Simulated scan of single mutants.
Amino acid sequence: MKKRTVLTGITTTGTPHLGNYVGAIKPAIESSRNSGVQSYYFLADYHALVKNDSPDRMVQSTLEIAATWLALGLDTRNAVFYRQSDIPEILELTWILTCSTAKGLMNRAHAYKAAVQANLDQGEDADHAVMMGLFCYPVLMAADILMFGTHEVPVGRDQVQHLEMARDIAARFNHHYGELFTLPEAVVDDHVAVLPGQDGRKMSKSYNNTIPLWLPEKKLRKAIMKIVTNSLEPGEPKDPDDSALFLIYAAFADSAQREAMRQAYRDGIAWGEAKQQTFELINAELSEARERYMDLIARPADIEAELKAGAEKAREWARPFLDRVRDAVGLRSLG
């Protein structure tokens, strides 16, 4: 019987940050240690092309992200770790799925709707400068997921729509061509669904508000001290549910630590002290992995070898599965 499959990936558009770590990498690696799980982890470089304005930055991002997963303890003997662009079957599946995906479904994608609204707000044509990569992004994501019979995808709450679209695409295909695709489920940790950045908005490269994952200790502390808080003085009660700082702390804390910090907020902890405790908690979790990361990043050829080996393992599943999909839609040999 096929193991329960868990899949996740990160686009290669920048330096890994704390939001990537708590929202995707950490829960996925923890899941991979379960012997009853088949884990797939990938560098989503095809997705990165949607926003690619620097090929050199993409290469550097690929190196940094791969080194990050390995430094944090990914065991590539058990998990399948690969670069998306090393799996040509994914692009073929994307086209097959595109041909049975309703345009109306893509019209409802949050990223596309946001781009259209921004154009309208500026008096432009609705689709001004909207590339097909953005519009069809959910289909490529569906192919990533459906290719490997994925049961669960750890995501931030803002990505749940993409999982729902993947389910819709799979269900429509299955209805027309037979039950080939597993319907995936989104797995969201309520403490880390969307980690805020320094300014309180979602931590995102596009907002330029991220805290890089592998900052040296002094720079990490400085970055955390810059997290925006309100003007309440020491001794004045503070609302943890209205604090970006608390949400970041909670993402790294266990349940007892979270409750203790909640009480400290109600008791009026000074912002400086709350930030110091947040720094100490995060630094304690990352310090050993930081040393491993610095060693790995200096050995790119070793990382490349790991990715190539992972791609071959992924294709051992993808090749025969795609053959079944091709047969189902009528892409068959005549003799």
Rank of each mutant, 00 (worst) to 15 (best):
N34C: 08
A115C: 05
L232Q: 10
D45W: 01
T62I: 08
L163C: 07
V228Q: 07
T15P: 00
Y82R: 09
H47F: 01
A114C: 05
A311C: 06
L105Y: 02
E185G: 07
Q84K: 01
A171I: 10
P27F: 11
A314V: 04
T12C: 12
R83Q: 14
M294G: 07
V329S: 13
T150D: 03
K222T: 09
N52Q: 14
L163V: 10
E152R: 10
L74Q: 05
T11E: 09
K3T: 00
W69K: 08
D199R: 04
L74N: 08
S333P: 01
A114P: 03
A166F: 00
G310I: 08
T150W: 02
R315P: 08
K3A: 07
V50E: 08
L245Q: 00
K26F: 13
I90C: 05
S100W: 01
A111C: 08
T68F: 00
T11A: 15
S31T: 15
I10L: 07
H191D: 11
K226F: 11
D323F: 09
K308Y: 07
A71F: 03
R292T: 06
G23Q: 10
I248P: 09
V37E: 05
D199H: 06
Q263I: 12
D327C: 09
A260E: 15
D190E: 15
F321Q: 09
L245R: 01
Y249Q: 08
P55W: 13
A79C: 11
I211P: 09
L296R: 05
A24D: 08
T68E: 00
A166S: 14
E152Y: 14
A298D: 12
S333M: 14
T5G: 03
H151T: 09
Y249R: 11
H128L: 12
A301C: 02
K313V: 04
Y82H: 13
V80P: 02
R262K: 15
F246E: 03
A193G: 01
P138G: 02
L286D: 02
R262N: 06
G149Y: 09
M261V: 14
R4C: 11
D327G: 05
I10C: 01
L245Y: 02
V187P: 05
E236D: 04
A28I: 10
E185V: 15
L120M: 15
R299Y: 01
Y293M: 06
P237A: 12
V80D: 02
M225S: 14
K222Y: 04
K313P: 05
A223H: 15
S61W: 01
A170Q: 03
A289R: 03
R77W: 13
S204R: 02
D189I: 07
A114V: 08
R258W: 04
Q257C: 07
D241T: 03
D168P: 00
P240N: 02
D323Q: 13
Q122C: 15
Y40S: 08
Y293G: 12
D75L: 12
L63I: 10
Q161D: 03
R262M: 07
P55G: 09
F279E: 07
E280S: 12
R262A: 09
V187G: 00
T15R: 10
H110C: 00
L97A: 00
A256Q: 10
R319Y: 06
G23P: 14
T62K: 14
S54D: 06
L334I: 15
M203E: 04
T150R: 02
R326Q: 11
